[in-house]
Design a protein around this nucleic acid. Structure first.
Lengths: 223, 223
DNA sequence: GTACGCATCAATGCATACATTATTTCAAAT
DNA sequence: ATTTGAAATAATGTATGCATTGATGCGTAC
């Protein structure tokens, strides 16, 4: 998402379209013409086109010559690809973060996210749980200090969003995630880079396998 | 690079600008106005702007409000970031490729690239050597079968291009690279995923350290 | 002499107009 | 009836014009 409150029409178009994709207002496999979207967002075609190109590069849509912009359905194969990457990238982040030594503020933010996951689980609020989980991962990656790592994982996390949301209610109570996060936090505090990496790698690998198993089980191949 | 011969002005602008950056016609830290570039490439500002935005997303330039498009100098810190990523991404590719089992054609292409490296070394042709080395890595990543991995590593390889070229003549004769590549190829042939990953990880880690040491030694921080 | 402010200028960002091209439909012929 | 071709329509890709805005330079005042 673009940070500020929209100064430019370009950012406005990008944010609007991305939000529509993520919350399902733009359906996968359906096509949307530049003109339609421009009218809807109240900007001209130029910024819409700009946004479409950007979203295409981010892997959320394909722009097809005369058929408009199509929201890419996410397949099991895509999720497999992405989790292969996240399973090496996020553990790297954990390792780097541990090595760097984090400020108390950073650690506290991650602890708050973890606590929020636990609370959400008690309330049975799966959406909050997922948000807090995402937040933890985002903070961890940011703590690595590697900007490109932040950018890359952010992109993949966005692509996974729909699949995670779709499988949220099908998965067994994800209580072990909280423990994993706490274990990683412990390693980060004590500067145990190797431990952080290994624990987080196992955490990510398990998450990937679980997600893919769920998608396969429910034949969800066009989210 | 965009595959085909330019049907669209957008692709033409992108290819032209990217080529100018990579071969140094556009100098880092210098600024170039949309209009200048448009005149030079003989297209209007629109496709130039499109290309600039794309190149910005790819991390090659920054577009600054009234100062034009600035080619990003690559710093030692950038190289450190990128090598951290390549050091986990490419070994993953090696592992996946070994696991998948490659066709004879794929293996042969990689062998040809390795041979070309060796020949170039004999001839003392460092530019060919670098090209062949790049080719090997590109083929390896493609062999992983993970499209996102191909895209990501390709992007980083582009960003590293200038630094590699600058340090090409300073580095000690890189004869061990050929051996490393052969060792990886051996693992790929025999399906030794773990071996391929480890050897390639060591290869990449060494390359990163070497590059960064060279940059530091020669105080090259604004390529 | 220096600093601050205003005015001018230029570059971008956006909108719109235009041209190119693909797709679809309709008609005609086999 | 089906297939092929041609024409029309519609959407993209590109160019250009316009307005906004930031930067720069000059002048004046302290």
């Amino acid at each position: 998402m673009t940070d500020e409150k929209h100064p430019s029409a370009g950012a406005k178009a990008y944010d609007a379209i991305k939000a529509m994709i993520l919350d399902g207002r733009l359906k996968p496999s359906a096509s949307y013409l530049e003109t339609e979207l421009a009218d809807q967002i109240r900007v001209s075609r130029t910024p819409v086109r700009e946004a479409a190109l950007r979203l295409e590069r981010e892997g959320l849509v394909v722009v097809r010559p005369r058929r408009g912009m199509q929201v890419l359905p996410v397949s099991t194969a895509d999720m497999a690809e992405i989790y292969q990457l996240l399973t090496v990238l996020e553990p790297l982040a954990a390792e780097l973060a541990a090595r760097r030594g984090l400020s108390e503020a950073e650690l506290e933010a991650m602890e708050r996210a973890t606590q929020k996951m636990q609370d959400a689980l008690v309330d049975g609020d799966l959406v909050s749980w997922a948000e807090a989980d995402d937040m933890f991962h985002a903070l961890l990656v940011q703590a690595s200090g590697n900007r490109r790592l932040v950018e890359a994982t952010g992109r993949y996390r966005t692509q996974v969003h729909r699949a995670r949301m779709a499988t949220l209610t099908m998965r067994p109570c994800p209580s072990s995630s909280t423990e994993d996060h706490r274990a990683v936090l412990h390693c980060l505090r004590s500067g145990d880079a190797e431990g952080a990496r290994k624990i987080h790698a196992a955490h990510r690998a398990a998450a990937g396998e679980l997600l893919i198993a769920l998608l396969a089980k429910h034949s969800l191949d066009n989210l």
